[in-house]
Design a binder for these strands. Structure first.
Lengths: 138, 138
DNA sequence: GTATATGCAAAGCATTTGCATTAAA
DNA sequence: TTTAATGCAAATGCTTTGCATATAC
């Protein structure tokens, strides 16, 4: 089942849609997209030239909090935003330049990355990060 | 086979040992230790009261570059340094407060965390990060 | 003796905040 | 009409940098 576009999911949530938020949402489309807040800011300005950085940050943080957008911590630069927040997938990241690819779950076999999904990388390390809430966090 | 203490591994590398570097290395001992640069700074001062922040950052960056210390990106705060850089392990991190535990590889079964290693967390997400070098990075 | 580490203070960057203004529903 | 989003500019927090001085080897 294909997932509905981000903007439709946001409308379905009855999230207040402003032109600024729409401009941000429009930058966050497609597979294998990973944008920094600043890249989102630049692109959103083509849809809404007067948008401010603060609004971009506010919007991105809310999208992440809603689970509609994922955030990925690059080892080299700022946080990257991943529009594919609803679709589980993993990452392949270059410790040299920060280049980042998505990895489909089927490509991962017992912590081993399938050759077809190595994108020319020499894979040196695997880390599994479990996320959740500890006993004292609600 | 037990791994030699960090300070000995550094001597074996013929790394220039200064009192400041020794003080930093001494903070980075033990299992399940994850310290921020600032925590390392505070603790290192007990061994060498006049050490500067810049030296702590320099030293930590070099230890990471040598692969002797690992760095973990907390979702909530600054980078954490993990002395256990030579021993492969995974992480369990709280998205609320940033609390972080090590997970031994044997506890991970097909991307499922063994109950005995959940530390009271409600695990909500798993991400596998493959690290390596892309085709153009040396 | 010489290459290299250190400390200082300032700069850099990414991100957040407070608050008055504006606009969506 | 009311509630919430926006923009601005300043502040914050973490980390890096440049450069003169000190020091391990």
């Amino acid at each position: 089942m294909p997932v509905a576009p981000l903007i439709e999911r946001l409308e379905a949530r009855r999230w207040r849609i402003t032109p600024q938020r729409r401009a941000v949402a429009e930058t966050l489309v497609g597979e294998h997209v990973h944008l920094s807040a600043d890249e989102v800011f630049s692109r959103a300005r083509t849809g809404f030239p007067d948008i401010s950085r603060a609004t971009v940050y506010n919007t991105l943080n809310e999208l992440v909090a809603m689970g509609e957008v994922g955030e990925v911590r690059s080892p080299t630069g700022p946080v990257l935003y991943d529009p594919n927040g609803t679709d589980r997938h993993h990452h392949l990241v270059c410790t040299g330049c920060g280049t980042l690819f998505d990895v489909r779950p089927e490509g991962v076999d017992a912590l081993h990355l399938a050759p077809g999904q190595r994108h020319g990388f020499r894979v040196e390390d695997v880390e599994v990060v479990f996320r959740g809430r500890c006993g004292t966090c609600p």
